[in-house]
Design a protein around this nucleic acid. Structure first.
Lengths: 214, 214
DNA sequence: ATCGTATTGGTAGTGACTACCAGATTGGTA
DNA sequence: TACCAATCTGGTAGTCACTACCAATACGAT
């Protein structure tokens, strides 16, 4: 049965990745991203530089690596097509953020979890390091395409597609602003709330919550 | 008079930069960005690789190099503080785009000028090449900070600053979408119009033009 | 004519990243 | 148990972007 086979392999592989990434983020945070070489990360993780490149295609991916896109796309597809574009996208972003940060225990207010701490450390690196910031923004652009694909009913005309792109890009930009703010607050505020505030600031208070309840 | 002095030097320097960049964009477009080395560009431009690095800090800057930011910031500062945020920023972006593309002759409709052709070639590279796209998006982020600074009356409270950030980022994202669309149309459409359409799609039709005339 | 400065070029080096190849480990099989 | 195939890992050598550090040259001003 190749299922069991690949599952065991995959677990070991995922664990190796986790260890390498943890050491990478720790070193990057401590000594700076540029000042830390891939060889340094490899040595700290107890593997060869080759192995690092096997698991992470580029040095930047040691920090980025998010499956965030899939999460958002799923929520988009599950949302009601009757609502306006910005609300559909905004709600999906907020829901995805809730899933990402809650992790399991409802810690609303302060005391971020270990999972959140790691997320925050990576976020801080992504914001302060030019190369990482650029790559992160490009990932956001890829997410935009995924959202548009999830929204598109297959073959929409060029003009509708353009409007969808514009709405999606603006929503994601607002979310990015929220992420920056959240990291500046060291995760003490509630991420979904910050995203909602950013969306409201950009599109007006009525974008979310004019529907039934809340 | 040191004015004449530096002017002559600056002219020669600007001309050298122009030549290098022209060859770079030509080679990148023809053989691909990644497949073209800086040494190739230097050889085509008739200079040494060192000289290329003297004029352009990174290979990516051979394509990017825009003074767009300054243009936008000026329009922002000159706009009326009475209007809503999104309209102030949106109008500034549209005005700046008008200045950038018009160049001097009123060519509304088709037949892009040589200046526009060069702009389009760079834009196509920026969109299709991952590394350039990432850097371009990061430049947009820097422009966002410039806009916020131009808007901020000095010491605004944290919450107002956050709202400004959110609005500015969303506007710039819409503009980026417009730029993509414009390059897909090979510049046949009017760039300011496309930007206006993108802003309207993201923020609603009423954002621009509810004021007097137009 | 001369001096200071800006521009250019060369050399050597670092570091990210990529083939190309060899050994080791693991899971399933005769 | 012995064997096979796939995967994981490591090493070597090389490309390329980019950076000091240093010499030569051209240019503008006194």
């Amino acid at each position: 049965m190749p299922d069991q086979h690949s599952t065991l392999r995959a677990q070991r592989r995922a664990e190796t990745q986790r260890v390498i990434q943890a050491h990478a983020v720790r070193l990057f945070t401590g000594h700076g991203y540029d000042a830390t070489t891939v060889a340094d990360v490899a040595e700290a993780a107890g593997v060869s530089p080759m192995t690092v490149y096997r698991h992470f295609p580029t040095k930047e991916d040691l920090v980025l690596v998010d499956q965030h896109a899939r999460l958002v796309a799923e929520r988009i597809a599950a949302s009601s097509a009757a609502q306006p574009l910005v609300r559909r996208i905004g709600s999906a972003l907020i829901d995805a953020a809730t899933t990402l940060t809650s992790g399991g225990s409802g810690n609303s207010g302060d005391s971020p979890t270990t999972n959140e701490q790691f997320l925050l450390a990576r976020l801080r690196l992504m914001i302060s390091t030019p190369a990482l910031r650029a790559r992160h923004l490009d990932n956001n652009y890829a997410l935009q395409q995924a959202i548009v694909d999830a929204l598109g009913d297959g073959a929409t005309d060029s003009d509708t597609a353009f409007r969808t792109q514009a709405a999606a890009s603006a929503c994601l930009a607002a979310m990015h602003t929220a992420l920056v703010r959240w990291s500046e607050d060291d995760g003490r505020t509630d991420l979904p709330d910050v995203i909602a505030k950013a969306l409201a600031a950009a599109f007006g208070e009525g974008v979310l919550g004019t529907g039934p309840d809340a």
